[in-house]
Nucleic acid binder design. Structure first.
Lengths: 215, 215
DNA sequence: CGCAATTTGTCAATCGTTTCACAGCTGCAT
DNA sequence: ATGCAGCTGTGAAACGATTGACAAATTGCG
């Protein structure tokens, strides 16, 4: 059981999905030297409504001050705390070190706070031993031994569709709690006990195609 | 000529986003040799409700037969038509041939129907001339000349945040109608006239972090 | 000091999506 | 041939999210 539970308001999934966007725009504001911002100003920048901005922030507690607006630094700090917790980075492993896995791992290491890449695995022998975003690629057969020692919490899954199911069940057995899933396989269906973020690039591209062709 | 008129029902964005998922599961069903499927069976596989499946399909016209179910082949054909049109592949260019761009382009070429990669561009001279998913990388300064000749319809944007805005405005000027956007920049805000599918990997990863830490 | 302008927090109304319920159709077993 | 079990299509209800509206708070300025 977790102690860190903001019971002030229950954040619905749509709200959670918007948090990173707030984070991005607030970071930009901070860089530009702004010290405060109003909900209407932020809404205009982000292409949403002032009402939604206020409603969203209010899920987590009153960060703003009536008559004034929101203090950029305070707001950014609060949202960072929500997204990245107390600063403890989640130990993370990468499964599948192909092109996509490589690209995504450098992304995780360079561009996003909150995670620490501790290991990478692949089936191909020729990948083993190679350096990748600060870790050495190991063979997938060493997954169990490695995880029992390092206790990773999150896994990035960049394996072909056929392997996804088997790898996922091993990860669940090893106590992995979250998966960032790039395989063409809906992990959320068979494994409701872990938190899954599916990134289905194929789906994304196809739905864009639909919109392009039908309007 | 289209059998299914788009104005039969107006498909809302949530429905459109589910189409590729139907496509995936129906393809799997077809491979497994099934010739028909009921809404409840499909729903169970996909982790949704039978009601939603029927409602979704009904947006586009009655593909099913009362008392029987849906013919897998017919359904797959109809959904393919919606997603990929008459088979004409959309000419597409890639901007930014870094690791992510490379991974994504091989994806577009290999794994998804409906697109044809016709060109790739980068700012770095050392990228120019290299082969990538069947095309030769050109310098970004040749973008205008190339597009005027080849008239691409879609662009994949894999450039750093700082360049996104400038490149996007050039693409819009060149008549690009859709952008698959991987840059950390919300293209939909400044350019409402084009169809944009934002893939914000950072946002995706951050929201996963929130869910992992707060439950 | 008091008023006008601005802005948040929040409750209520609206809007859109999902789920429910059921009529009508089909194939099958008896 | 008839009843039964299972299915779709669809209008209506329920639900959830977004938007609107307004009271309370704050500042600046005359």
């Amino acid at each position: 059981m977790q102690l860190t539970k903001p019971q002030h308001g229950k954040a619905s999934l749509p709200v959670i999905k918007r948090l990173p966007k707030y984070y991005r725009y607030l970071t930009a504001l901070q860089h530009s030297g702004a010290s405060k911002v109003s909900s209407s100003e932020l809404a205009r920048m982000m292409g949403t409504t002032a009402s939604q901005v206020r409603q969203d922030f209010n899920c987590f507690g009153g960060f703003g001050q009536q008559g004034i607006g929101y203090n950029v630094e305070v707001l950014l700090h609060e949202i960072s705390a929500l997204l990245f917790g107390d600063g403890e980075k989640l130990p993370t492993i990468l499964i599948g070190t192909g092109r996509l896995g490589t690209a995504v791992s450098s992304f995780l290491v360079r561009d996003v706070n909150g995670y620490r890449l501790v290991g990478a695995f692949d089936v191909k022998d020729e990948e083993v031993g190679r350096q990748l975003s600060g870790v050495t690629v190991r063979h997938i057969r060493d997954l169990e031994a490695f995880c029992q020692e390092h206790k990773p919490v999150m896994a990035v899954l960049c394996v072909p569709r056929e392997s996804a199911r088997e790898v996922a069940s091993r990860l669940v057995a090893l106590g992995i709690r979250g998966v960032w899933n790039f395989s063409h396989y809906d992990l959320s269906v068979p494994y409701p006990q872990i938190t899954v973020e599916n990134v289905h690039l194929g789906d994304s591209l196809m739905s864009l195609g639909y919109r392009l062709r039908n309007e």
